[in-house]
Design a protein around this nucleic acid. Structure first.
Lengths: 341, 341
DNA sequence: TTGTAAGCGTTATCAT
DNA sequence: ATGATAACGCTTACAA
């Protein structure tokens, strides 16, 4: 912690110049094996440690990637949906493997200040955005700055940036089709924030499935809220008041769905006998809840890693395309309707 | 993204020297209000942005804190326990408010390489460690390096570093006492990794409660595994084979407890009629699971924020003490034994 | 193969 | 009140 050993100290000890040391340490070609070895030995002896800050500064990079979680006004509430943690885990591990540091923050979705903070202030070499608004100022700003970034979520029409995620519209449609197939007719929708893409595309899928089946569409059957069991539970309670003959719920997250199922029971509706429930994400919990939760599986791990790989490729100057990952309907017990209407 | 505006550009435009600009921008005393205003205007006009990397380098700091999650050999499996996400959320928000960046990574608990990477390489000004091993090389290394760090978890005997967390021994003891009070006698324990402090202290509390009640202690009743519903479920299945007359489970995390309850049902045991279950953490899920989960509440939010405050104070040179946060037994439905034996 | 020197952008010291 | 200068630790032309 006291006096740091620098490259010059090694140079002095080895009787060479700092540049030679730098070259030796970085395994540059054109340095004789013998000198290299000698210098590396001395470095080890002296307990030399490269000052990454200095190097990154000199190299004008930061070797750091920010993973940003947009939140909305009202709901700067505590987050705990396991989905987020899974994707963070995958991202940080993958970054680690590539020698990058992972920075994390929540950012207000309606502002773009954070672009200055992370990009202009040169804190990071790139950004990973976990979901975004349908009209997203931050993304526009990132683009105008020429920043490297990858977004988690569905690829949407006219999108001129890179995303990695499932086709949420198709996923939601599959979920709702399934509910219709097992005989459900009054299907509620519980989403995250209305103007975030992931919720928006899933709502589209929901509406599409209803339409295809010739079922009536009713704004009263949709509700938008936080990704927590509590919010899910409250929403379904509200929904039941509006639509007493509700016979199914499609929730935009498994974690929400847990609250949904609990409140349904509290209200005297059995799941799945009276009301079927389908969630989204297929977090570990889904298979271990009772009843086991029907859901749309997303390859979260793979997706997180892919985001990193794409971003690093972009930083290397490559042109990379968006990826649409496969989703999969996993039918479990929460939607096995014994008695269709 | 092209040519960056630097302090010298402003100096040139304003007809002053770079040092004056620096002083003006940093609101140093001894600079006339008029000059300051003029310079700040020009800076704004030119869209000047401080290069934090350069400043941090010059100031020999990084203005970044690492939050590290130790993992064990076998289990570099995906993490998703909401507890972790809640604490990460609290930590990152609090760091943000203080102008610090939050770096995140998982580190192998049996190594201390990461100390070099984060501390010696000067990537961060301090470290937040989420749990640790009973004998923790990383911590010893951090101490020998004189690094600033704060650990999440119980304060343990002879500990000469700063921790923030609940008294896990007391928490576990309260949980198990409660089970004993409602008539349970064959109580199983499902922990995280055996040599991590949080699991270790809770095991002690568990044993203590059994001892106090004069109940027999049986190694076969304890199992150690991952913090996932799946692992919790598998553990309880194994436990039931070893101890067929099991009538209660104390699990070290609510998320685990979910899997525990599901498998109990699969095995034909009703919760809480046949087997009572108590979890730990009081994540949002706990109150919304069915049956509602009895658990030990930890002030996760407050704890995360407090860790940050302490760490920043340490960095400022203050001497700060450890904190033991209050825990609280929350009795819900998973432990209401209708029929005691 | 190696050394010299410049520079990344900022701030602090020491003058003036 | 302000400017010149050095320095933080490293890498890389360019020169030798």
């Amino acid at each position: 912690m006291t006096n740091r050993v620098t490259i010059s100290d090694i140079a002095r000890a080895a009787g060479v110049s700092p540049s030679t040391v730098s070259r030796a340490l970085n395994n540059h070609t054109g340095i004789p094996e013998s000198t290299r070895q000698k210098i590396q030995e001395i470095a080890a002896q002296l307990n030399y440690r490269l000052d990454v800050r200095a190097r990154n500064f000199r190299l004008q990079r930061s070797q750091t990637i920010a993973t940003l979680f947009p939140y909305q006004n009202a709901s700067h509430r505590q987050i705990s949906d396991p989905f987020y943690l899974e994707i963070v885990g995958a991202i940080t591990d993958e970054l680690d493997q590539h020698g990058y540091d992972a920075l994390i923050a929540r950012v207000h979705v309606e502002s773009d200040d954070w672009c200055s903070r992370y990009v202009l202030d040169k804190r990071v070499d790139g950004i990973l955005l976990i979901d975004r608004a349908v009209e997203d100022n931050g993304i526009r700003r990132l683009q105008s700055l020429g920043a490297n970034f990858v977004v988690w979520g569905a690829e949407i029409a006219g999108q001129d940036y890179v995303s990695v995620g499932c086709d949420g519209e198709a996923g939601a449609r599959d979920a709702v089709r399934h509910l219709i197939e097992i005989g459900r007719r009054r299907i509620g929708f519980i989403g995250g924030f209305e103007h975030m893409v992931e919720t928006d595309v899933r709502r589209r899928g929901y509406l599409l499935a209803l339409e295809e089946a010739g079922l009536p569409i009713d704004d009263q059957s949709m509700l938008f809220t936080d990704f927590t069991p509590e919010a899910g539970g409250q929403s379904v309670r509200a929904l039941l008041e509006r639509v007493p003959d509700l016979d199914a719920i499609f929730a935009c997250s498994d974690y929400m769905a847990v609250g949904v199922m609990e409140v349904l029971r509290q209200c005297g509706r059995s799941v799945p006998d009276d009301v079927s429930v389908v969630g989204y994400d297929d977090i570990p919990l889904a298979a271990y809840y009772s009843p086991r939760l029907t859901t749309i599986h997303q390859p979260i791990q793979a997706g997180g890693r892919l985001m990193v790989q794409k971003l690093l490729a972009m930083i290397e100057g490559e042109v990379v395309p968006s990826s649409v990952l496969p989703h999969r309907l996993i039918v479990r017990d929460s939607s096995r309707a014994e008695h269709s209407r």
